[in-house]
Nucleic acid binder design. Structure first.
Length: 615
RNA sequence: GGCCCCGUGGUGUAGAGGCCUAACACGCCACCCUGUCACGGUGGAGACCGUCGGUUCGAAUCCGAUCGGGGUCGCCA
């Protein structure tokens, strides 16, 4: 015999339901016992509703309510009534009504939860992860999961409307030599051989293009065995997109349309650029020192090399003689930063590898004209006349009352340092509007970068990325200056996704592989299937892969993608709830032809000893 | 892998060598309270301060190691 457990969602009830008999079920959010009269807030996925128990009218139900504790699972039956005048709760969507309980049944008792489920207090993240199922009941996570669902649904709908079809690709793959470290899966059937989990479905989607699926997408799980960050998990999800017969602009336009749609539907009250600005890699590096600049604030970088070339200041002149430049930016109203704050900036720069930074503070207010010596504060003040100092400030757009931060050295270093300072200053001063989505595209990434450790060229994006046609002759002579049709979508200082136009010619692909130091034989061994596929009529194609975790975090206003993932892992890639990863039995190892190395055995022995001593 | 930060009752914090046989709030337990909605009142239980070792007459407080967590750089085609 099956009774109906629910006729409505708790959060769905409104004044119009008054008079209806309803059956509700959910968790006890909070209980208020007035010594007879009991109020319960009952919670399910739809929200909260207040249930009232009158001991005189329904003694049996009231007895159940008296017994109940927070997080008990409770079913009730009763009548929806308008609240008596003056007791409505405008804070609650169901606050105009309440349910008079006629009967109640404890569907399941619950232990006192290890942290409050009914309030948004800060709880240690490990504890939250250990009891993630409880954390998911809380407002923040419940809301984030729903938002994530909406975003993913909108993505699917959007792609479908544009004629894309979703195709699944294998999770067990051939390991690839380039790129991130693979997660490996040993083969039982093929002793000594391994599958690799996909870092992305890159090769599959290109093969789909050759296969005539000219508009493909997939909500794809990707795996990379690298160190984690707030915006990096060992497994993450991408909206993987690829299309044939397109050029770079087509992909960028599509991506821009998608994000406009998402923002419109999910965060209509936030600001988003009507057109996403497009910068070349060289341009953003020059203006922001970063390939993923946060455009919600200014603090743009300026080249001061010409102004300081003749100064007596060795720190600058030596850097210039060594082929470097002097660059800096102005912090509006930064003259208020005290000695400690300035020292902190210098420390940051040192930690980033620079020998330091030079700062100038300008006293007063208004333009810098007629600056006097005692209005300039700087450790390098004696090397510059007030006029020279003012010129530096003006070059950065500074006024009196501002601070100037200047770094000297090779571009790579000064970019890194100034980017770090720019982000730090913006963070400290709250310059970024939390209700703004400052999207932009970065294009024309270099195709290759020199890997000093391996002493070889490596692909900046990946080795299927199409070089600029004009730059193909440079593949042999000067790989470092080859531009590629690779692009990123960036928002609020984060790389949201990247993509490229791919190589569809076997010859160009072979040339790129050569640049990367792969012989024809090696290339055939590792990418033979790709080269072969390209020889059967590969269409011109390209794609992009926006990160879904980062996208949802952005729309959720979360800075950590763990907050938008139901069951994320810790920084050490572990799961505090299940205990994964964990040792497996000898038998399981034997099945897959694996024997542990001495250091692994040692680590396990120590782990066991540690576990024993704490018991 | 480098550097930095954190680790005190169930939760969040206070405590910065003896005043701590550890304090506060929430939670929990009991009793009281019939219109609350972070209900209210009274009383109570609950941590030896992540772990190990050291300094000291004396350590939650200092030092070292270790474990766990986080941030950041490297790394992340």
């Amino acid at each position: 015999m099956h009774e109906v457990l629910k006729s409505h969602g708790c959060g769905e009830l409104r004044a119009e339901h008054a008079g209806e008999q309803v059956t509700l079920a959910g968790w006890v959010h909070r209980r208020r016992d007035h010594g007879g009269l009991i109020f319960l807030d009952l919670r399910d996925s739809t929200g909260l509703v207040q249930v009232v128990f009158h001991p005189e009218q329904e003694p049996a139900a009231s007895a159940v309510a008296a017994e109940v504790r927070n997080e008990y699972v409770l079913g009730i039956h009763g009548e929806v009534t308008a609240r008596r005048a003056g007791t409505e709760n405008p804070e609650l969507s169901t606050g105009a009504i309440e349910v008079l309980a006629a009967s109640a049944e404890i569907l399941n008792a619950a232990e006192t939860p290890p942290f409050p489920v009914n309030q948004e207090t800060n709880v240690d993240e490990v504890t939250r992860l250990r009891y993630r199922y409880l954390d998911l009941r809380r407002e923040r996570m419940a809301g984030n999961l729903r938002l994530r669902h909406r975003v993913v649904k909108l993505m699917r709908d959007f792609m479908d409307e544009r004629g894309f079809i979703e195709v699944e690709t294998p999770v067990l793959n051939l390991a690839t030599p380039e790129g991130a470290r693979d997660y490996l899966v040993p083969s039982r059937v093929h002793p000594g051989s391994f599958y690799a989990l996909p870092q992305s479905p890159q090769q599959w989607k290109q093969l789909l293009m050759v296969g005539g699926v000219d508009k493909y997408f997939q909500i794809a799980r990707c795996y990379r065995d690298e160190d984690l960050r707030a915006d990096r998990q060992p497994e993450f999800t991408q909206l993987d997109v690829e299309m044939a017969f397109v050029e770079e602009e087509d992909i960028l336009d599509l991506t821009e349309d998608l994000y406009h749609r998402l923002a419109e539907e999910v965060r209509p009250e936030w600001t988003i650029p009507a057109r996403f600005p497009r910068f070349t890699f060289a341009e953003v590096m020059e203006r922001y020192g970063s390939d993923k600049p946060d455009l919600r604030y200014g603090l743009e970088l300026h080249d001061l090399t010409g102004l300081v070339r003749t100064a007596e200041f060795r720190v600058f002149t030596q850097a210039i003689e060594a082929g470097g430049r002097v660059r800096g930016f102005a912090v509006p109203s930064g003259a208020d930063v005290g000695r400690r704050g300035l020292d902190e900036y210098v420390e940051l720069a040192r930690a980033a590898g620079a020998s330091g930074i030079v700062w100038f503070q300008f006293a007063g207010e208004g333009p810098l004209d007629g600056l006097t010596a005692d209005e300039v504060k700087s450790p390098a003040a004696r090397f510059f006349t007030p006029e020279q100092a003012a010129a530096l400030g003006q070059a950065c757009g500074a006024r009196r009352g501002d601070l100037l931060l200047i770094a000297a050295g090779p571009d790579a270093l000064s970019s890194k340092v100034l980017d770090l300072l720019r982000r730090t200053v913006a963070e400290q001063r709250g310059l970024a509007d939390p209700a703004a989505l400052s999207f932009l595209f970065v294009t024309q990434f270099p195709a290759f970068e020199w890997d000093a450790d391996e002493e070889k060229w490596s692909a900046v994006h990946h080795l299927f990325t199409s070089p600029f046609t004009d730059d193909i002759p440079l593949l042999e002579r000067d790989p470092g200056s080859v531009r590629s049709h690779a692009y990123d979508i960036v928002c609020n200082g984060q790389e949201i996704g990247s993509g490229s136009i791919r190589i569809h010619s076997r010859e160009v692909q072979l040339a790129v592989l050569r640049t990367l130091g792969l012989t024809l034989d090696e290339a055939k061994l590792k990418f033979g299937h790709m080269l072969e596929a390209f020889s059967y009529g590969a269409p011109p194609h390209g794609g992009i892969a926006p990160g879904i975790d980062r996208t949802v975090a952005l729309f959720a206003g979360e800075r950590d993608i763990r907050e938008v993932i139901a069951f994320p892992k810790t920084k050490s890639a572990g799961d505090p709830m299940t205990g994964a990863p964990a040792p497996v039995s000898e038998r399981q190892l034997r099945d897959v032809h694996i024997r542990l190395a001495p250091d692994a055995e040692e680590a396990l022995a120590e782990q066991r000893a540690g576990a024993a001593s704490t018991e």
